[in-house]
């Protein structure tokens, strides 16, 4: 995963294995609140990848990914913004 990453700062995201909900890694564990997510520098990616692998094995999360942040430390891509904020229209 780390080899393909572009950018300098990231947060780590995944889906909760049981509920499928989008979650983010925080200092206290996985949370649905991205504002609490731990900011990860590119050179820390391997360390956090290990945490992700561990939690996948523990059946807490699935399908983890590093989400790139922009220069304001906000989520950069539209896809990840939608993933974080939910649908862009009313149901």
């Amino acid at each position: 995963m780390a080899k393909k990453l572009r950018g300098e700062f990231f947060i780590l995201s995944a889906n909760d294995l049981r509920t499928g909900e989008v979650v983010f890694l925080t200092e206290k564990g996985w949370s649905v609140n991205s504002s609490e997510a731990t900011i990860i520098k590119i050179d820390q990616v391997d360390k956090f990848q290990a945490i992700s692998d561990r939690d996948e094995k523990k059946c807490i999360i699935v399908s983890s990914k590093f989400v790139e942040l922009d220069e304001n430390r906000k989520i950069k891509s539209l896809r990840d913004k939608i993933r974080n904020s939910g649908l862009t229209f009313k149901i």
Partner: peptide, 28 residues
Amino acid sequence: RRLNGQLSEEEFKPLRLMNGLYLQLHAY
């Protein structure tokens, strides 16, 4: 077995797909 950790996601994915279950952007 998946929830108990007896199956990895790699092993479970083809089984869930055979039953129409995807993992999408926000949820299953």
